[in-house]
Design a protein around this nucleic acid. Structure first.
Lengths: 154, 154
DNA sequence: GGTGAAAAAGTCACCGC
DNA sequence: GCGGTGACTTTTTCACC
């Protein structure tokens, strides 16, 4: 992960459809050397996959909600996490510091779908003690583009 | 946005590097008709862009934190949102229901960077009254793949 | 890591339904 | 109007330097 790799990864985060010709300019290398770099980044799982950035409204899931979950002491956190992993509506499931055990990020069609999901899929899970749901009213920023730091060369 | 478009979008969320040959099988159309579909999805901004899914650890931002922000009454929410938009470390900035005004999702290198960011970039913003920072200890699930619902045909 | 030719994929004008 | 066909063009891949 040297300076060239970082430049490639930054360029590909902005435009994953960039061709090798364009990327080779970013890298300052030939097309074949650039192709080799990208292939190695995939092999090392620095690049975990290729995605499209999809409009949530067009996708039919305009409602964004965060749900905090507290588990009863002794309950199976792993079981809960596994159950959440299986739901498409759960974009993220984190274990967190503070008063709660989990923080979920949900995308759903509407409030009715949220109500149904929280009561039948979240609160119905064994070990769940308490939940708190927070709705996003607007999202001035929502990106999956990560900051790329100058880290130690590998 | 008919059934074929939805199938294409689902396939492209899983593998944005899928070629038109592969996509045409998903769509049940010829390569050229598939290419036309994908182009129209881009033109209508259903597909907003093409991205790579980058490993946060390799990118040098392993630390994930959520920060709640409360603003003083009368403070400029738009000004705060604009400031947050400008920071790479701020992946998301939402206005939310409940006791807080904003919820930020941050990715940073380490605790020291978080401490610096929250004090100099967030709490230093005009109008900020109170903040609460929550750390993610683990992330059993973190994806940008949206559920695609059967919505009204356009 | 660069070069260049072969292979593959994407693009586009035209045809047919 | 929407999709299929086939030729043309661009991009990617790969053996060799």
């Amino acid at each position: 992960m040297d300076e060239i790799d970082r430049n490639l990864v930054v360029a590909l985060q902005e435009n994953g459809a960039a061709g090798l010709a364009e990327l080779s300019k970013v890298a300052g290398l030939s097309v074949s050397a650039t192709a080799e770099r990208v292939k190695r980044l995939e092999e090392r799982a620095v690049i975990r996959g290729w995605r499209i950035d999809l409009d949530p409204i067009a996708a039919g899931c305009p409602l964004l909600a965060f749900v905090f979950v507290a588990m009863r002491p002794g309950a199976s956190d792993a079981g809960f996490a596994d159950a959440m992993r299986g739901h498409e509506a759960v974009l993220e499931c984190h274990t967190v510091t503070g008063a709660w055990c989990f923080l979920l990020k949900l995308r759903l069609a509407d409030i009715a779908a949220l109500e149904d999901f929280v009561s039948t899929k979240v609160r119905a899970q064994p070990g769940v003690e308490r939940t708190e749901t927070i709705l996003a009213l607007a999202s001035p920023k929502e990106t999956a583009i990560l900051p790329v730091a100058e880290a130690e060369e590998e």
